[in-house]
Amino acid sequence: MSDELSIMDQLGVSQVGCFACGAMHELAPDVITLNCYECGKPIDLSSYKIESLFNRRIQTHGEVFITARGKYQASNLTAGRLVVEGILEASYECRELALGKVAHLAVAGKADRVVILPGARLRFSDFAHYITTTQIRVEGHLEVELLKFNGEVVVGEGGSLSGNLEVESLMVEKGGNFEGKLSVG
């Protein structure tokens, strides 16, 4: 269970909401299970690794990892962090969506932040319609024709971004690469 806690720490989460009634709960450092004080229902903090077809609904504040051979197929998915290396066929909502080598999204969803993982080589046009976010962090390779959105783009060390951007802000950290036209403001 220490893994779940470290994910919360990584995401900077100190409060979680009840999936049933929405009541907010402070997270103590050592919490491993939680029941809502308002409605009494359990709040899932655990993590899941999906390595084959999975078609039950998941609602967790922990991590859901869909491996390259995994396929999530349900009505929706809620997670703290959602790591997709396989196929996601569900509407989703998460704090962080991390896309790996052969990530495939088939339904639209929302993420506070999107991360292109190291080793991934993705074309933005392949999943642009399926993501609503305000921050994209590139640690792998991302190719765009025109990336136009109200948010921030960060190219991390080892990351590479090519194409034209119309964004609110851009940061290319030392060790990152960007080449293209930029329009800010």
Binding site: S169, L170, E179, G180, V184
Partner: peptide
């Protein structure tokens, strides 16, 4: 145009042009 190793264009700034940013 901008050529550099690391770049920050903050929210509220105005930028129009081509960029080449990277270690190379």
């Amino acid at each position: 145009d901008v050529e550099t190793v690391a770049l920050t264009v903050s929210r509220g700034a105005h930028y129009r042009g081509r960029c080449r940013v990277g270690q190379v």
